[in-house]
């Protein structure tokens, strides 16, 4: 039993929960978490891991709940040039791109 997001994702899927996976795919400037960092979210908004050290988690989780419930995968971008980024609080001066995708139990494509 670990807190590692990918282990948690597998465990949650086994429990029958709907799961979405968020991954930092690009960073510029002083992004708080490195490329490849994962955040795993279930349909109820429970989460494990980190994509920004707290700055944009709330916004990512809100999108991820939709995606866990069946919405298509989405590429999110947060940065100082983006007013919504300020709203959600990426005030550390960096820009990050986060890909949020469903964990697909079946054979089909992820989206």
């Amino acid at each position: 039993m670990t807190d590692d997001p990918l282990d948690v994702a597998e465990r949650w899927a086994k429990e029958g929960r709907r799961v979405a996976l968020a991954t930092v795919v690009d960073t510029w400037g002083s992004a708080p978490r490195p490329v490849g960092s994962h955040l795993v979210i279930d349909g109820e908004g429970a989460f494990e891991g980190s994509v920004s050290g707290g700055c944009v988690e709330g916004a990512v989780i809100a999108e991820a709940v939709e995606i866990a419930a069946g919405a298509p995968a989405k590429l999110l971008e947060f940065g100082v040039a983006d007013e919504t980024a300020w709203e959600v609080g990426l005030s550390c001066g960096g820009t990050i791109r986060i890909f949020v995708e469903p964990l697909a139990a079946g054979e089909g494509a992820a989206a």
């Binding site: 990918l6 282990d7 994702a9 597998e10 899927a13 996976l21 991954t23 795919v25 590429l75 890909f99 995708e101 469903p102 964990l103 697909a104 139990a105 054979e107 992820a110």
Partner: peptide, 25 residues
Amino acid sequence: MKLSDLKAVNAARTERRLCAVITPL
């Protein structure tokens, strides 16, 4: 990501095998 891929990755990490996940954006 497919659940079967996630399981494969987690197994590889446990076995200390180097692997990559390629995700079309």
